[in-house]
Design a protein around this nucleic acid. Structure first.
Lengths: 335, 335
DNA sequence: CTGAAAGCGCTTACAG
DNA sequence: CTGAAAGCGCTTACAG
């Protein structure tokens, strides 16, 4: 039904080899033949089967992407950038949304293997030993984007989470805040969990403040948990004057909780987020945030992966650290 | 390097045919052989090449998805549901983010063709004649999700936009509003553009109100345009007491604009949105919205498409209309 | 510059 | 129940 190379060859009165050659833009095809082949292709509406090509070329131009949550603005923005860069380089994306489901992840990694993807991008760091070793056996380039797994065999594209969290906390200290609460991530996460927590602590200590455990909570990066953790923080006495949440989503949750309790941001409590997602501009007051270069992150992730795939001698061999940047909006106030 | 069926056969001391049979779960394989094959598969870490399989089976289990904007909460939520349903049915998603770029869309449709996807899902209605006829020639099931193109050859999964817009406007009228502004979508769009506009107009007329052109603006569904259109509406005298925006994004833009001009939602102006995206719960005040069943929409889109793919006799032959539902939150006030 | 033939890694009649 | 062989739709040495 759908035309194949043989049909084109017959119609043009040449061999399939010749058709293949004009398809692949090889020289050494007489103009006359090329013209005939092109006309036949046109008339038949022929497009070569990527499937068949992949089989013989041993290259699929497919990249498997594992996203923890597609509905999160942060991830969907990175994904958007990944898609853009991949598309420009003639790669296509097989997208998997795992929603914290480790079994689904494993299933998908198997699919990626069966599909013989050329490379894999993973955007969460909660990989276990089983997945880690499966990934290694796969013999396919793997890259982590925006997170760094504990297993140092893999390359990550990230910001310096420790520095970024340190700077965010420092910013609040410089505004004169003394009672700074912290809504962290999962401490099992190396980057967004541990590093950001340690950055917060060290900034406090370096400026002679002590760490108050009542002011410290851990969520799961989502709006809801920011809200819930803030609710707990509002029971503290005295109240914190500022909150640093390690994701914009949690920061927005915290802001909403504050406003639902008839308090004002930033007059009563200042809030600073982390990520630089679109939420920052969307909420009122707009959210000051320690931003990751989300767009570049996606772009560089793909470019680095393509380097690995093509076995480029200049390909990355270690983590790529991008610059974070504090963007001041209206959610923090000088004390 | 990566093991193939031949390697498994050799290791197990059987023919490739037999290996293929146990791979495909056929009966008529002696337990003894089955065991040997399975062990060989295990030891080699063998997984069949989906590429090779697709070639002979003439089925790729791939669905191409065209999303207008991945960073939009509405679309990413549908996509998430699409992915979930596809995955459960052993289908994989090739995702394309076209960002209003008709050339990119065409390029991707060609890729989908070359990839021999089993089906295509499209989430925007701005398809031109060229794309429309290409789609028809493709001989592959196509389904539109959340939108309906002008071209009636295609099946859509949608809500009744006219009714939904009518009901949303009716809701404001019932609250006692007389001066109801409207921020619409692109009038070239059949569903979200035209139908919602007509629904708004008819609701007004049916209750004896006249249509004030100053109160009507058209945006592009995004936050920014809601903001900009609202800015224009704020120049009206008298001010409208309520605004109906045909997407939650535009409604949030409108709310922000109102609050940036020192007015209050809903005390000064009520706002109602459309879609039921996560934004509704995220903003303050929370946004009343005419909701589409986003999750079901994604699920049913895939199920319908799979019906078409398997050439099920019960497969849909016309549009599928899902129920809309008004969810009242805190952005609208009784006058 | 052009074409016949082998091969990519599978599945599926067909024969036994 | 098992296997040899053809074929899926391409590309790529190889020979001319």
């Amino acid at each position: 039904m759908v035309p194949k190379i043989k049909d084109v060859a017959k119609k043009a009165g040449v061999s399939v080899t010749t058709v293949s050659r004009v398809l692949n833009g090889e020289k050494y095809v007489k103009d006359d033949m090329k013209k005939r082949v092109q006309r036949a292709i046109e008339e038949l509406g022929y497009a070569p089967s990527h499937i068949a090509r992949s089989l013989v070329r041993k290259k699929t131009n497919l990249i498997g992407v594992i996203v923890p949550d597609l509905t999160s603005n942060f991830y969907s923005t990175i994904l958007s950038s990944i898609e853009e860069t991949a598309s420009m380089n003639d790669y296509n994306l097989l997208v998997c949304n795992i929603i914290e489901d480790i079994d689904k992840e494993f299933k998908y990694l198997n699919v990626f293997h069966e599909m013989r993807v050329d490379g894999i991008i993973i955007m969460h760091e909660k990989i276990n030993e089983e997945i880690s070793s499966f990934l290694t056996k796969l013999q396919v380039p793997v890259i982590f984007s925006s997170v760094r797994p504990r297993d140092q065999r893999f390359i990550s594209v990230i910001v310096d989470d420790y520095d970024a969290a340190y700077d965010a906390t420092r910013f609040l200290l410089d505004l004169g805040h003394e009672r700074i609460a912290f809504i962290g991530g999962d401490m099992r996460d190396v980057t967004s969990g541990q590093s950001r927590y340690v950055g917060y602590c060290n900034a406090l200590m370096d400026s002679g403040k002590k760490i108050v455990h009542d002011y410290i909570r851990f969520g799961d990066y989502k709006i809801r948990s920011g809200y819930d953790m803030m609710k707990e923080l509002l029971r503290c006495d005295p109240l914190p004057t500022a909150v640093f949440a390690v994701s914009d989503d949690m920061a927005v949750g915290a802001m909403n909780c504050i406003s639902d309790h008839q308090l004002k941001v930033p007059d009563d409590i200042s809030v600073i987020g982390f990520d630089g997602s679109q939420l920052t501009e969307l909420v009122r007051p707009t959210l000051t945030s320690m931003e990751q270069p989300i767009h570049d992150m996606g772009k560089i992730t793909v470019e680095t992966l393509l380097g690995l795939i093509s076995d480029d001698e200049h390909a990355a061999t270690s983590d790529i650290i991008l610059k974070h940047k504090l963007v001041v909006r209206n959610s923090c106030k000088k004390l």
